[in-house]
Amino acid sequence: MERKELEAKVLELVAASYKKDVNELSMETSFKEDLSGASVQMVALVAEIENELDATLMLADASACATISELVDLVEEEL
């Protein structure tokens, strides 16, 4: 999968898990400052990534990502 395509897919999954409009999100969106989600939402996101992209992530690794861009990097490594 091309990087751009992967970015778009991950943005879509983040939006669904955190119940945000995808247009409000970018690669620079910070999980802590902009999304302020609970761990439950990160669990939902990791599950969605497994379902849709066939990449199994460790929750600890995903939770350590500061931005969506870092999460895309992590998914890319797992694909």
């Binding site: 939902a44 599950a47 497994e50 379902n51 066939d54 199994t56």
Partner: peptide, 11 residues
């Protein structure tokens, strides 16, 4: 439920 068949089977 969160996981679909394929991902669940793997887990």
């Amino acid at each position: 439920t969160r996981l679909k068949e394929k991902a669940l089977g793997r887990r």
